[in-house]
C-alpha cells in the first residue's frame, strides 16, 4: 500500500486501531511518517470532543418555548385568526377549495347587490346643484353650477369681506345645497 492510500484509510476511521486492516497496520509498523499521521488523527479526535463538550439546554427551555407559543396565539393579528377560522388547520384540500369557492360566491353576490342599489345610469341627469349666496347687501341670491362657479363665488365672497368690514352681528352665510 502507498502512503497516500494508508492515509485515506486512517482519516476514514480516525486511525482507530480496531478498524484498521492488516495491510495498514503492517505499513504503519514500517513507516514513521504514516505512524505520526495516525497519532495526530487520534489526538485530533480527542481534541474535537474535549473542545466541544455536550451542553445541557437551559433548564426552562421547554417552558419558554410553550409560553412563546401561547403568546403568539394570543397576539396573532385578525388576519391569521380569520384564516384559521375560515380555513382551519388540517382541512383536506377539497374543504379548502370549498371554502375558497364560498368566498368567491359571496364576493360575486355582494357585487351584484351593490350594483342593483346604484341609481340607474341610463336615467336623465338630475338638475345641476345650485348655490345660493345671500350677499351682505341683501341682493338677490345668485345661482351657479357647482363646477368651477363655486370657486368664483368663494373668491368674490372673500373680496367682499376684505373690502367691506362687517359689523359684529352681520350675518354672512354661504348656503350650498343640491336640488334632488
Amino acid at each position: 500500500m502507498t502512503c497516500e492510500q494508508v492515509r485515506e484509510e486512517l482519516v476514514a476511521c480516525w486511525a482507530c486501531v480496531d478498524e484498521l486492516t492488516f495491510e495498514v497496520v503492517e505499513h504503519l509498523e514500517q513507516c514513521d511518517a504514516c505512524r505520526r499521521e495516525a497519532v495526530l488523527l487520534r489526538h485530533t479526535r480527542v481534541m474535537l470532543h474535549s473542545s466541544m463538550p455536550p451542553l445541557s439546554a437551559p433548564v426552562n427551555m421547554a417552558e419558554r418555548v410553550m409560553s412563546r407559543i401561547d403568546e403568539q396565539a394570543h397576539s396573532a393579528g385578525w388576519l391569521p385568526r380569520a384564516r384559521e377560522w375560515f380555513v382551519p388547520r388540517r382541512q383536506p384540500s377539497w374543504a379548502r377549495a370549498a371554502a375558497v369557492g364560498t368566498a368567491l360566491a359571496l364576493a360575486v353576490a355582494g357585487g351584484a347587490l351593490w350594483r342593483s342599489q346604484r341609481p340607474d345610469q341610463s336615467a336623465p341627469p338630475s338638475p345641476p346643484a345650485v348655490v345660493a349666496d345671500a350677499g351682505i347687501d341683501g341682493s338677490a341670491a345668485r345661482t351657479a353650477t357647482l363646477d368651477g362657479e363655486l370657486d368664483e363665488l368663494m373668491l368674490q365672497h372673500q373680496r367682499l369681506e376684505m373690502t367691506q368690514p362687517l359689523a359684529d352681528d352681520a350675518g354672512v352665510s354661504l348656503v350650498v345645497y343640491t336640488s334632488r
Binding site: P54, L55, S56, A57, M61, A62, M66
Partner: peptide, 11 residues
C-alpha cells in the same frame, strides 16, 4: 417533544 429533543437540538 420539546423536553425530549431540547438538549439534542440545543447542542
Amino acid at each position: 417533544l420539546v423536553d425530549e429533543y431540547k438538549d439534542k437540538i440545543y447542542n
